[in-house]
């Protein structure tokens, strides 16, 4: 029955396998973008610029990894930007105003994301409030808290003293350093991507997420604890928000109550362009990474080519709609 290996035509077999890759379409898009930009601008295809791009998308990309899982269970999380801001602000306030040592502040900051993730997960998974509404609520709560905590001011580690200033350089290295020339933010993104890939595509929990996204009823009939499976992605993305918040703080040395405003839309755009279907079930980690890279390359390219900043928003908006329409078309065709 399996006619893939007859005749030993390895090349033909490879072609067939490649064309079956789900993410082929956006991969080609990314490659094409690359080629166009390399031709249009001398400086695009330089190591510095490319590393810049990866660094620029790292934080958004890490959150997008979590968002992929949220979308896979037919959910959405609008609160990521706000929880990001709150985690960063909390950590900063603890370090500067409350004079709590750096390491402890970071751990407590991580807990902020965990808590909001749990809140979202429980409200959506167990109490069954629609994800859009629930996360819109937590978004406002988190944002409000961030603004209250920061008092509308910017907290800067270059200006405000901390309890253990000897640890500051180490803290700055975390986000601002680099290993063999690769910015550490990018490194964290790469490592988390690999972990996310294995978790989402190879582990039972990830499988169950995709199952629940495919059919809640079938999942329930198969003995899957649907409520817990729906809750998990929100907890994960909550923690990722905290991680990225602390990394950002380490990189920029400053936090602002208004940081991350609008971030959720970029994160969602990255995931949707990467092929995550809002109907649930068809997200892939690789797709999301490619989607996020496409956005980063686009933003970078638009500046290099000297295009209006407004154009950016238009292009990203169009991309998202086109990607979702194509996804719907794909699904309809398969029915």
């Amino acid at each position: 029955m399996n006619n893939g290996n007859t005749g030993g035509n390895i090349f033909g077999h490879a072609i067939r396998r490649i064309t079956k890759i789900k993410e082929l379409g956006i991969l080609i898009t990314l490659i094409l973008l690359f080629i166009i930009l390399t031709i249009a601008s001398d400086v695009f295809c330089t190591a510095t610029n490319l590393l810049n791009i990866v660094r620029q998308v790292s934080l958004m990309g890490i959150q997008a990894l979590g968002m992929t899982m949220v979308i896979a269970v037919a959910g959405v999380d609008l609160s990521v930007g706000a929880v990001y801001a709150l985690s960063a602000t909390s950590t900063a306030v603890m370090m500067t105003r409350l004079q709590i040592p750096i390491v402890l502040s970071c751990m407590l900051g991580l807990i902020v994301g965990l808590v909001f993730g749990l809140i979202n997960g429980i409200i959506i998974g167990y109490i069954k409030v629609p994800a859009f509404i629930a996360t819109m609520g937590t978004m406002n709560i988190a944002r409000g808290l961030a603004l209250i905590l920061s008092n509308g001011m910017i907290i800067s580690l270059d200006r405000d003293p901390v309890a253990d200033p000897d640890n500051l350089p180490g803290f700055f290295q975390m986000g601002g350093g680099s290993v063999f020339g690769i910015p550490s933010l990018a490194l964290v993104f790469i490592i988390l991507t690999i972990i996310a890939y294995f978790y989402f595509h190879k582990s039972m929990q990830g499988f169950r997420m995709r199952a629940v996204g495919g059919s809640i009823d079938a999942a329930r009939a198969s003995g899957i604890n649907v409520r817990r499976v729906i809750m998990l992605p929100y907890v994960i993305i909550g923690v990722l928000c905290s991680i990225t918040a602390i990394l950002n703080f380490s990189f920029m040395h400053t936090v602002q109550g208004t940081m991350g405003e609008g971030m959720e839309l970029d994160v969602l755009a990255g995931a949707y362009i990467g092929g995550a279907s809002p109907a649930g079930g068809s997200a892939t980690i690789i797709g999301t990474v490619i989607g996020v890279l496409i956005m980063g390359v686009l933003k970078n390219g638009l500046v290099l080519l000297g295009v209006d900043a407004y154009m950016q928003k238009v292009v990203i908006g169009v991309l998202v709609i086109v990607a979702v329409v194509i996804d719907m078309y794909n699904n309809a065709k398969r029915q």
Partner: peptide
Amino acid sequence: HVGLFMNFDIKD
């Protein structure tokens, strides 16, 4: 809707 996951293959 209840017996199968239409978005999966046989083994899944």
